[in-house]
Design a protein around this nucleic acid. Structure first.
Lengths: 334, 334
DNA sequence: TGAGGCGATTGAATCGTTTTAAGAACAGGG
DNA sequence: CCCTGTTCTTAAAACGATTCAATCGCCTCA
C-alpha cells in the first residue's frame, strides 16, 4: 500500500540503514546521499510507520491525557499547554475525556497501556493510584493534574485553591465590602472546600467582616440562580454586600437572579460578585465578571515537562508543583 | 519490562501461536489449554503490545476524529456517539481539536497517517479534500462530519440546516408571530446561510409575515447582545415580535440585552426567541430557550458506521447522509 | 607503497504479534 | 493394523524501522 524504507532505499540506491540515518541522525550522512534520499522520500510520498518504530523503541512517542471534562475550558487550556510542550520534544498528546466516569477513565488507561504510551497525564476521578502504580511498574510513568495525590508517590501539578479563595475574598475586603457570602458546594469536592477555607482565612484578619456560607449541591448555573433568588428575597439589610461564588457557572447563575426583571439588585453597587476559573463566558456576561484565573496552559506544560523527565529517568523522586492563582478584575466588583 | 506472548507461552507450556489463538480465535483452542494460558496471562499481567499487532495487521484499530472545537457540546456529543459505535466493533477513537486552525488540522492528519489509523472522521476547516484523497490512496479512508463535501468523492454525515431554519421560523409563525427577525452571521459560514435560507422559505407561505435580517460578524454572546441592544433601542412598533438567532450563543446574548434592567422587553410576551444547537446553557438560561436540536450522537455513530464499511471495502461508492433537526420547545416561545 | 586512521555506509539482527502450512495425536472404519 | 479424517498445536515467516558491529573507501603520513 504505502512505501517503506526499503522502497526508498532501493530508489535512492542506498541501504535501509542509511535511510533511517537520514531521518534520525542527519549528521551521520553526507549531504549528497542525504539529498538523494530526501528526493526518493518525496517522490514516493514515504511516511514512517509509527508502529514499527514503536515496536523497536519499546514505547510510543505519544503521551496520553485524561481529563474530567473536555467541555470545561480549564481542561482544554491545560491540554493546549501540554500539546505545545510535547511538540517541542517531538511528542504528541492524545486526549481522553473521562467525563467523571470511572469506567471511561479505566478504558482510556487500558488503551494507553496496550499502546505503550510514553507516559500518562491524568486528572483522576476515582482513586486510581493502584492502577497508576501498575502502569509505572510496566514502564509508563504518570503525573497527576489539578489534584495532589493522596499519597505522594506520584508527581502532581495543581493550583493552590486556598490561596485562590483568600485572593478572592481579600479583593472584596479591599473594595470595602464587609458582609461576604460564599456560595458553593458540595463540600466533598476538594477544590470547593479549599476555596472556602481560603475565604475564611481572609476574613479572619478583619474584625468587622463576616462570612456567610450558602451551600449548594452542584456547581451549576441553575444551582447558582436558586441561591441568587434566595438573596433577592431577603431584605436589603440582610443581604451580603459581596458574593464569592465557588466557580464561574455558579456566579453566572447568581448574576442572572440578581439582574432579573423585578429583582433589581444592582451589581456591583449593591452586591459585588466574584467567580472562579475565568471561563470565556465570564468575560461575556451581562456584567463582566471578576474571577480567579488559573495558569491552565502552564499546568499542562509543566506536567509534560515532569513526565518526560520521569520517563527518561524513572528513579527520580516524585515532585509536587503547586501554582498560584491570579485575580482578574472586571466590572462586577468595582 | 512487560511480559510478552513468549513469556506467557513458556509459563503455560505451549507455543506462542497457541497464545495468540487463545486471544483471537478461542474456538480453535481446547478448553484445557485455554484455561492454562489464561492463568499464565493473569499471573504475568500480560498486556498485548499494540504496536506489534498493528505492524502485522498493516493498520491500527483506532479511528481518528478531528473536530472544530472540543468545547462545543455539539462536537463532544458527536465524539461520544462515535466512541460508542467504535467500541462495539472493537475500535477506539482518538480525539483531535483543530480549533478552526488549518495548521492544527494538518498536524492531526499527519499524526493519524504515521499511526496508520483505521480511518479518519473530520469536520474540516479548510479545503482538505486533496489531503484526504492522499490519505485514502494510502489506505486510510475518511468521512466528513457536519459538512457535505464540495465534491461528492467522500462520504459525509450532516444535518439539514435549511430544514432547521424552516422548522424554527415555522414554529414562530405557528405561535402567531408575524414580524420575524433573523440574527446571525457571517454568511460565509454555510450553516448560517442555510438556516437563513430555511427561514426565508418558511416565511414565503405566509403573505402577512415579514423577515428582517440583522447581520452579525461572529456567532458569539457579545455579538448577540449588541444586536439585542439595538432592538431594545427601537420603538415597540418597529421591533420584531419574534427573533430567530443563528445559534444558542447569539440567542443568549440577545436574551441578556432584552432582559437587562431598564430594557424591560418581556420574553416571550413581547418578543419570542428561538436559538439553534440546543446547548446545555440554553436549558439553563434565565428564560429557558426554545432551540433546534441536532442528533449529534447519531451523527458520530453513523459516521463511524460508514467509515468501517469503507475501510472494509474501499470500492464502495461515497454516501451522503443528511439528518433532520428537531424542535425543542421551551418557555422562550410560548 | 603500505600502515593507520577516519568518516560514511552497509547488512543482519531485533522488537512482539499474527498467520499459515505442516505436523502430531487420536479416533473410527475397513 | 493401516488408512483417513478431525482436532489441536507447533514452528517459522512475515510486518517495517532502528541499531550497531563490521566493512568499505579514501586520505595522510611515514
Amino acid at each position: 500500500m504505502s512505501a517503506s524504507v526499503k522502497d526508498v532505499a532501493a530508489l535512492a540506491g542506498v541501504s535501509v540503514g542509511t535511510v533511517s540515518n537520514v531521518m534520525n541522525r542527519p549528521e551521520k550522512v553526507s549531504t549528497a546521499v542525504s539529498e538523494r534520499v530526501q528526493a526518493a522520500i518525496d517522490e514516493l510520498g514515504f511516511v514512517r510507520n509509527d508502529a514499527a518504530r514503536q515496536l523497536r523503541a519499546g514505547h510510543s512517542s505519544t503521551i496520553g491525557l485524561v481529563v474530567l471534562d473536555v467541555r470545561n475550558p480549564f481542561f482544554t487550556d491545560v491540554a493546549r499547554g501540554a500539546e505545545d510542550r510535547a511538540a517541542e520534544g517531538g511528542f504528541s498528546v492524545i486526549l481522553g475525556n473521562s467525563d467523571e466516569k470511572a469506567d471511561r477513565e479505566a478504558t482510556y488507561l487500558d488503551l494507553f497501556e496496550v499502546q505503550r504510551m510514553h507516559g500518562v497525564l491524568i486528572s483522576p476521578f476515582g482513586d486510581i493510584t493502584g492502577r497508576l502504580r501498575q502502569l509505572r511498574d510496566r514502564g509508563i510513568p504518570a503525573v497527576l493534574v489539578d489534584r495532589t495525590s493522596a499519597d505522594t508517590s506520584f508527581s502532581s501539578v495543581s493550583v493552590d485553591d486556598i490561596a485562590g479563595g483568600a485572593l478572592a475574598v481579600g479583593h472584596l475586603l479591599a473594595q470595602g465590602r464587609r458582609r461576604i457570602g460564599f456560595i458553593g458546594g458540595p463540600m466533598q469536592i476538594q477544590q470547593v472546600a479549599d476555596r472556602l477555607e481560603g475565604a475564611r482565612a481572609a476574613v479572619v484578619g478583619h474584625a468587622d467582616a463576616t462570612l456567610e456560607v450558602i451551600p449548594l449541591d452542584a456547581l451549576s448555573v441553575i444551582a447558582g440562580r436558586a441561591a441568587g433568588a434566595e438573596l433577592v428575597a431577603r431584605s436589603t439589610k440582610d443581604r451580603p454586600d459581596a458574593v464569592f461564588a465557588a466557580n464561574d457557572l455558579v456566579a453566572m447563575g447568581v448574576l442572572q437572579a440578581l439582574m432579573m426583571q423585578g429583582a433589581g439588585v444592582r451589581v456591583p453597587e449593591q452586591i459585588a460578585l466574584i467567580g472562579y476559573d475565568d471561563i470565556d463566558f465570564a468575560r461575556a456576561a451581562v456584567v463582566p465578571l471578576t474571577s480567579i484565573r488559573q495558569p491552565s496552559a502552564l499546568i499542562g506544560r509543566t506536567a509534560v515537562e515532569i513526565l518526560l523527565e520521569e520517563a527518561a529517568d524513572p528513579t527520580l523522586p516524585p515532585r509536587q508543583v503547586v501554582f498560584q492563582p491570579e485575580l482578574v478584575v472586571r466590572e462586577s466588583t468595582v
